[in-house]
Write a protein that binds this DNA or RNA. Structure first.
Length: 472
RNA sequence: GCUCGUAUAGUGUAGUGGCCCAUCAUGAAGGCCUCUCGAGCCUUCGACCCGGGUUCAAAUCCCGGUACGAGCACCA
């Protein structure tokens, strides 16, 4: 009999391919040349969710094998694990630091040489590019194993080759259809000291080699990576084939662009911060995780945001408002209401009205009440003045401040107001600019870091010296 | 140049031959509720890149276009 298949909308992340009852081992491998940013949060969230979903393991790996182009930043080794935990809700099961596993990479590099799957190439980059394009062998390819071993030693010898003089190449074949796969480079010489291990090593593996070896050693079952690394997968598979290892399942995603963030690179941010363009890594204008957290974007919002975007290979552009709508859902129930009066205008009240009001801090949730002692005047925003309005939770007044009704008597606009307040600055990150709005903030004693909702304005977070806009 | 990938409403996304005159979210418009321009609820708008082919039947398979993106680094 034919079974009717129920087609329901799939919720959440798609199934991990070829799991076959295994507990998956996933990894996220940032370069600690700077702190985590919005882009990293995708990899973190998706990998961590899968690991949690299937009771598997998450590996946090520092791919810190470049001391020249992307020199490691020591603080990042501390800040990244902390932020990983904050974002994912649990800390990674394993922490791997590539620079401390160099002996393994060297062992395997030597194995590739000994098994004649690698050779030391002393051609220049330009020379090799020609060979690659013309599918012709470079002269170094004919070195025998012993020659290669000798040259390898010379790469490792501080009196031997200098950076740029020689690289180790995998002998994948110059006749590969895909030019990217032709005898790809696996290791090169760097003499800049590494901040963690100094000058202990001279020959450092490149990503395709280091990552491939480490994934094997860690028993990684599933790799989730950008589709820009598709050729990386193919290169690594050739290495796995040589060692007769099984390559992990690989899932790719496309590029994500957030228009409001424009293009930031870690190195550019680093430069701008040192030049004082930004106040620090958590400057609200920056797309770093610390800035987002500071701005009141909650970890669970980032998680549901990325899960909803899913794992398609499409390159997508998402407006920040999508992230905000996720965030609103999580902060709305916990945000007490406060009045913030921009451009305040004092209104003298006349007529009958109570001298004390107790107003709730949230329309639905149970929160401590706000208590107002009302004297003879209140403040409203200039924009709301000059017309009859309803003071929210208080009374109807005329344009002159005559109290016309305690109960709501008509459909006049409802405005927020305040008896007295503290001169406060609200900071708003608008693209690459910071806008500041002065106003009178209702008295409160919420601690720093509390997200409040400024009535009729939006959400803001309490900072030491004022308010920082979350979003509206 | 070579190689690889992707194409469903404004934006994301579900959907792997019939349940799809296509899902959900977000957005926009309107309404309800509410003493916030917040939250919630309701309604409406809006899409299968193009052209062939296979098939009784295609968003789903095949071929060819087109568009966009990526790799070919001594970065990750």
């Amino acid at each position: 009999m034919l079974e009717k298949k129920e087609q329901k909308r799939r919720e959440g992340l798609p199934e991990l391919p070829n799991l076959n009852g295994r507990k998956p081992v996933l990894r996220f491998a940032p370069n600690p040349n700077g702190p985590l940013s919005f882009g990293h949060s995708r990899g973190l969230v998706i990998n961590a969710e899968y690991a949690k979903l299937h009771d598997g393991e998450l590996i946090l790996r520092f791919d810190d094998t470049d001391t020249t182009v992307k020199p490691p930043m020591m603080e990042a080794y501390d800040s990244i694990p902390k932020q990983q935990e904050e974002l994912c809700g649990y800390s990674a099961h394993r922490l791997v630091i590539a620079s401390e596993r160099m002996d393994k990479y060297h062992d395997y590099a030597e194995k590739t040489i000994e098994t004649d799957f690698a050779y030391v190439c002393t051609c220049t980059g330009d020379e090799f590019r020609e060979f690659r394009l013309s599918k012709s062998n470079c002269p170094c390819r004919d070195n025998d194993v012993n020659e290669n071993l000798e040259l390898w030693n010379k790469m490792n010898d501080s009196n031997g080759f200098m950076p740029g003089d020689a690289v180790l190449r995998m002998k994948t074949g110059m006749d590969q259809k895909n030019p990217a796969l032709r005898d790809w480079p696996a290791a090169r010489i760097q003499t800049n000291p590494h901040p963690r291990v100094g000058s202990k090593w001279r020959v450092w593996p490149l990503l395709d080699f280091q990552s491939a070896i480490e994934d094997y050693l860690q028993g990684v079952t599933h790799i989730i990576r950008g589709k820009d690394l598709m050729d990386s997968t193919r290169k690594q598979k050739l290495l796995y084939d040589h060692f007769e290892w099984n390559y992990p399942e690989t899932i790719y995603w496309g590029r994500v662009k957030v228009h409001e963030f424009g293009s930031f690179s870690t190195s550019q941010m680093k430069k701008d911060i040192s030049e004082g363009v930004y106040s620090g890594w958590n400057d609200p204008r920056l797309p770093t995780l610390s800035a987002l957290f500071r701005r009141g974007i909650r970890p669970e919002s980032l998680r549901s945001f990325w899960i909803e975007l899913g794992l398609t290979q499409k390159d997508i552009a998402v407006p920040l408002s999508t992230l905000y709508s996720h965030n609103t859902k999580s902060i709305e129930p916990i945000s007490p209401r406060l009045a913030f009066i921009r451009d305040p205008v004092k209104i003298d009240l006349s007529g009958e009205f109570p001298s004390k009001l107790v107003i709730s801090s949230h329309p639905e949730e149970d929160m401590p009440n706000r208590i107002f002692e009302i004297k003879n005047s209140i403040f409203i925003e200039n924009e709301d003045s000059g017309k009859p309005v309803r003071l929210k939770d208080f009374c109807d007044i005329s344009e002159n401040g005559d109290v016309e009704s305690i109960d709501r008597s008509d459909k006049r606009p409802i405005v927020h107001w305040i008896t007295e307040g503290i001169e406060t600055q609200l900071t708003i990150a608008e693209g690459k600019e910071l806008a500041h709005v002065q106003g009178l903030l209702e008295k409160h004693n919420y601690p720093i870091g509390t997200i409040v909702q400024l009535e009729r304005i939006g959400y803001a977070i309490v900072e030491k010296d004022g308010l920082l806009m979350v979003h509206d």
